[in-house]
Computed example of a mutant assay.
Amino acid sequence: MAIDKTRAPDSTGARGNDVRADDAGPDIFEKARMLVRSPGSLHRNRQIEQDSGINRRDISIGRSTLVVLLMNLVGVTSGDRPAFEARVRHTIKQGVVTDDRLPGAKGARHRRFILIDVLQLALAFQLQRALIDPAAVAAFIADNRDDLERKWIEANHALHQCWLEIEVDAYAAFGGEGKGRPSGRVGALAIAGSRARRAIAEPPLVLRVDMLALCDRVRSSMIVLEKAARSVKEDLR
């Protein structure tokens, strides 16, 4: 049936994951500047795109394509898509992606995600895979947003690996929520070496993430999925 052409191949090659036509790249003034994003956000994103070797100005994806990309990144099957999609929505609402659209902006319901958005979400889901509390992950990314953006730029200049080292220590925020217990949320994560520690303290556990490898995977996936979405749009004409 012709309707089958509206489905892009999932990780198994089957046409089960829906990449809708509205996810095709913007073509009218960069889709109204990515639906009215802040100039600062777009400037930082453009710098990362250029450092990544991307010379086009229309790299962005819609929510359904974003879900497909993250599903492929963490290996979620198509049968688990509804639950995973809910997790994606919740992660976005927790502040992993800055919502810098103008209040009441026309088209705000059809949000598009630029490269820096997807990179931060990819990092969040990689950390969640390590069984780190999603709220702790969201707080870490929100608190270190500028440093992480600079790290993504650094990763694009690296030749082999670009390691991000993250301290994991619930007791760093002991009683931080006013409940007299280790916090599994705010303060549990920090960029290694960024906070003071008593000399007698045992060093915390450290997670290492190769930002270059993660960036390469996200960048290539965005380009592939955007091309698939454009193909869908052509098929529907």
Results as ranks from 00 to 15, higher is better:
Gly104Met: 04
Ser183Asp: 10
Ile54Cys: 00
Ala105Cys: 11
Glu30Met: 09
Ile28Trp: 13
Ile28Lys: 13
Ile48Met: 00
Gly187Met: 05
Phe113Arg: 01
Ala155Leu: 04
Asn156Ile: 04
Ala14Ile: 03
Gln161Met: 07
Gly13Trp: 06
Ala138Gln: 03
Lys93Thr: 14
Asp216Gln: 15
Ala188Glu: 11
Asn156Thr: 13
Lys5Ser: 09
Asp117Leu: 03
Thr12Cys: 06
Ser231Val: 08
Ile48Gly: 00
Arg33Tyr: 09
Arg145Asn: 05
Ala2Leu: 14
Trp152Val: 00
Asp99Ala: 12
Arg37Lys: 09
Val186Trp: 04
Val206Leu: 10
Ile141His: 03
Val74Trp: 11
Glu177Gly: 08
Asp133Phe: 02
Val74Ile: 15
Ala136Ser: 10
Ala130Tyr: 07
Ser60Phe: 00
Ser194Gln: 13
Gly184Asp: 12
Leu131Cys: 09
Arg101His: 10
Asp4Thr: 10
Gln47Asn: 01
Ala158Leu: 04
Asp27Met: 11
His43Asn: 01
Ala229Lys: 06
Ala229Gly: 11
Arg56Leu: 04
Glu149Asn: 07
Ala192Gln: 12
Met34His: 02
Ala213Ser: 14
Val224Gln: 14
Lys227Pro: 00
Gly53Val: 11
Ala229Phe: 02
Thr91Phe: 01
Arg87Phe: 04
Leu119Phe: 01
Gly176Val: 07
Arg63His: 15
Leu70Ile: 06
Ala172Pro: 07
Asp80Gly: 06
Asp10Met: 03
Glu167His: 06
Asp216Thr: 06
Val76Tyr: 02
Val67Pro: 01
Arg112Val: 05
Val74Asp: 12
Arg111Ile: 08
Ser221Met: 11
Ser221Asp: 13
Asn144Pro: 07
Ala201Asp: 15
Val96Cys: 05
Thr6Val: 12
Ala196Ile: 12
Gly40Tyr: 00
Asn17Leu: 10
Gly193Gln: 10
Glu85Asn: 11
Thr12Tyr: 06
Ala130Phe: 12
Pro26Thr: 04
Val168Gln: 11
Val68Pro: 03
Leu66Ala: 08
Gln47Leu: 00
Glu167Ile: 05
Ser194Tyr: 05
Ile200Ser: 15
Glu154His: 09
Gln128Glu: 15
Leu121Gln: 04
Ala32Asn: 14
Val209Lys: 04
Glu167Gln: 11
Gln94Lys: 15
Lys106Leu: 13
Asn72Trp: 01
Asn17Lys: 02
Ala108Met: 09
Thr12Val: 05
Thr6Pro: 03
Asp147Gly: 06
Ile54Phe: 03
Lys31Glu: 13
Phe29Trp: 13
Val186Cys: 08
Glu234Met: 12
Ile166Trp: 03
Asp100Tyr: 02
Leu214Met: 15
Asp80Thr: 10
Leu207Tyr: 10
Glu177Thr: 07
Val97His: 00
